[in-house]
């Protein structure tokens, strides 16, 4: 989903910076408040950020399509801390990759954070709330959140590029098809792996720090006990 340095006309760079900025600023505010008021959640915040670090560094082959891509890892922090804090954590990873690996870029940071840190996690969060409201099994819920956040990130990248580079014949839709085929189709198997992994990790978090999940209002105390008992 990384748009490389210089691969987006400067007008679009400015545009995506302006779109992303309010989310990042509000995210930094929420992050500060979270750390100050609920210091005990800091370790899970670090683990969530570490998952974005870890998963977004793994370039995996995508069977069927014959190319490689990487997961985003944003599902866990979307569920635990919401989309705004996730957007700040993603910026950190994106800056790291832009500066040290020339993967992504500083001019394209706004566009890349919009796809990976904002649009993906926001839609993932909507899925999370809806699935919670209909009382879907929490592990299935988390799988869906991570899957959607990952896949939708790549759909947004395709939209961003199609908007910046509409085809001379056929315009936006034709070039969207091209970029969609490159980014989103490759991503489907990887998004499934990511969803399964995040759901598995969630089990370990419930088992070790169910109390924090209760504090973060992800689970009720009864649910936490029930899940722990269910895996004995």
């Amino acid at each position: 989903m990384h748009i490389m340095e210089g691969y987006l006309p400067w007008q679009w760079c400015v545009f995506w910076y302006l779109v992303s900025a309010p989310f990042i600023i509000y995210g930094i505010y929420l992050l500060n408040r979270q750390v100050k008021e609920h210091r005990e959640t800091l370790s899970l915040l670090a683990v969530s950020g570490a998952f974005i670090f870890l998963l977004s560094s793994l370039k995996m082959p995508s069977p069927v399509v014959g190319s490689c891509s990487h997961p985003t890892g944003t599902g866990l922090s979307t569920v635990l801390f919401g989309p705004f804090i996730t957007c700040v954590l993603s910026v950190i990873v994106l800056i790291f990759q832009a500066l040290f690996m020339a993967h992504g870029g500083i001019t394209t940071l706004g566009a890349n954070d919009f796809s990976m840190g904002i649009a993906g996690p926001l839609l993932g969060y909507v899925v999370y709330r809806v699935a919670k409201a209909v009382k879907l099994n929490i592990f299935v819920n988390i799988f869906l959140v991570a899957f959607v956040a990952d896949l939708f990130t790549y759909v947004i990248t395709a939209i961003e590029l199609a908007a910046a580079f509409p085809a001379t014949h056929g315009g936006f839709l034709i070039s969207f098809e091209t970029f969609f085929a490159i980014y989103a189709v490759t991503q489907i198997p990887l998004a499934i792996v990511e969803g399964l992994l995040i759901a598995l990790v969630f089990k370990y978090i419930v088992q070790s720090r169910g109390d924090i999940l209760v504090k973060l209002k992800v689970l009720t105390p009864e649910q936490a006990t029930k899940i722990t008992e269910g895996f004995k």
Partner: peptide
Amino acid sequence: GSDDQGSAAIEATGYTPWI
């Protein structure tokens, strides 16, 4: 990598990176 394919598809439109 899909990221590199994306860059290649952009270059195919005749675009050259500005930075």
